[in-house]
Amino acid sequence: MDGLFSALHTTTDAAYAESVEEHIWDFWLEHPDPAMVRDMRAGVFSLNDDDYEAALHAFDAAITRDPSYAEGWNKRAATHYMLGDYGAAVVDLRHALSLEPRHFGALVELGLVYLALGQDQWALRAFDAALTINPHLNRVRAQADAIRHRATGTAL
Results as ranks from 00 to 15, higher is better:
102 R>M: 06
30 E>Q: 14
43 G>H: 00
52 Y>G: 01
61 A>F: 00
17 A>Y: 07
37 V>H: 08
80 H>P: 00
21 E>S: 14
76 R>F: 03
108 V>Q: 04
60 D>G: 07
155 A>N: 11
121 Q>N: 08
131 L>C: 06
52 Y>L: 15
126 A>V: 08
85 D>W: 11
50 D>K: 10
106 A>P: 01
13 D>S: 09
13 D>P: 04
87 G>N: 08
22 E>D: 12
124 L>K: 09
11 T>W: 01
134 N>R: 11
141 R>V: 06
147 I>S: 01
108 V>L: 01
110 L>A: 02
44 V>S: 05
78 A>S: 13
91 V>S: 11
78 A>Y: 06
128 D>R: 10
125 R>S: 09
17 A>L: 06
153 G>V: 03
121 Q>T: 10
58 A>L: 00
64 T>E: 13
8 L>P: 03
107 L>S: 01
90 V>R: 10
126 A>S: 15
30 E>K: 13
84 G>T: 09
125 R>E: 14
154 T>W: 02
152 T>N: 14
119 Q>D: 13
110 L>Q: 09
39 D>A: 03
24 I>F: 05
95 H>R: 13
127 F>T: 03
12 T>Y: 04
15 A>N: 13
65 R>F: 02
11 T>K: 07
68 S>E: 14
7 A>D: 11
12 T>L: 09
69 Y>Q: 08
144 A>P: 07
1 M>T: 10
143 Q>K: 14
121 Q>E: 13
122 W>T: 02
132 T>C: 07
89 A>R: 05
71 E>D: 09
24 I>M: 05
22 E>G: 12
104 F>P: 01
34 P>V: 08
61 A>G: 06
124 L>W: 00
20 V>D: 02
42 A>Q: 09
99 L>G: 07
59 F>Y: 10
75 K>A: 04
39 D>R: 02
29 L>I: 05
7 A>S: 13
7 A>C: 07
45 F>D: 12
26 D>Y: 08
124 L>C: 07
120 D>F: 03
21 E>V: 06
92 D>T: 04
48 N>H: 08
28 W>Y: 05
131 L>T: 03
3 G>E: 11
39 D>M: 08
117 L>G: 11
156 L>T: 07
118 G>V: 02
55 A>V: 03
45 F>Q: 09
149 H>R: 15
24 I>R: 01
127 F>Y: 10
23 H>E: 15
37 V>P: 03
52 Y>S: 04
148 R>P: 04
23 H>Q: 15
79 T>V: 14
10 T>F: 07
114 Y>G: 02
78 A>Q: 10
132 T>F: 08
143 Q>W: 11
9 H>A: 12
9 H>E: 14
31 H>E: 05
92 D>P: 03
43 G>C: 00
118 G>A: 05
56 L>F: 11
7 A>T: 12
57 H>D: 12
74 N>L: 15
51 D>H: 15
71 E>F: 04
9 H>N: 14
19 S>D: 14
29 L>G: 07
